[in-house]
Amino acid sequence: MPEWLLKEEQYEPLSDRDSFLDKSILSLLGILSRIRAQSGIRTGKYAVHAAFKVACTFLLIVLLSLSKNLFFILTVNVALLAAISLLSADKILRILKAGFVAALFTLVILLPSAFWGNRYGIVMIPLKVFAAVSAVNILSRTTEWRDVTGALKSFFLPDIFIFVLDITIRYIFMLGEFSLPLLYALRLRSVGKNNRKYASLSGVAGTMFIKSKEMAEEMNAAMECRGFTGDYRKSSRIRMNWTDSGYLLIHMLLLLLFLYLG
């Protein structure tokens, strides 16, 4: 045993600015818990089919973007609020937070333009942003993601594209889980002043890249062993039920309102 290892370390750390590590860890944790949360979404008897949800959300966003009518925008916002109010409290909080942050950010961005008379945009655009962000968030927080990607098939996207989307989500999770401990390890050993922050961080990113290449090759091999030749078929059949019809009806009404109001 070397002598220094037998002695107790008399060490007072130097200060350093390394909040970037905690921030990276937090954003990675956020992504992971988000992906974990969506896989357990209960799709009960009254769930609307994902294909309808995706189509209607897209329609809503197009209409929002096209509309020049405050009443229409308000109606959509209220309809979305009503939809949000049916969800559980934690989802409500997250969806509203995302919407408000986006709308507030937009408002701040637009504020200077108010001084040269932009009265229209300063009201309309934040409201539109709030509605659009809420609509997407409602979709992504009430639907399992593989149902969403599966629904894209109904819009004539090629199966192979949906396949790539699916494995991307899966690998974001796996690579994320792989690099989270790397960041932890970096933080646990960051006991002083790091003069080469970029080198450390790029070590984490670089290791992640090499790992991802390796994973890709392993996955290829595994898939070829199971007879994959590049074709990927996903089956999906849509059966309408009452909730689907109700959901579509609401969006039809919004569309009519849009056509009426402009």
Partner: peptide
């Protein structure tokens, strides 16, 4: 064509790279 998974994995790498916070001057 069979190497399609590579794209998905490249996409996930690209996604995660944007999650990395990088220190800027001034803290």
């Amino acid at each position: 064509r069979a190497k399609m998974p590579l794209l998905g994995i490249g996409a996930s790498f690209s996604f995660l790279m944007m999650m990395f916070n990088i220190p800027l001057p001034g803290g």
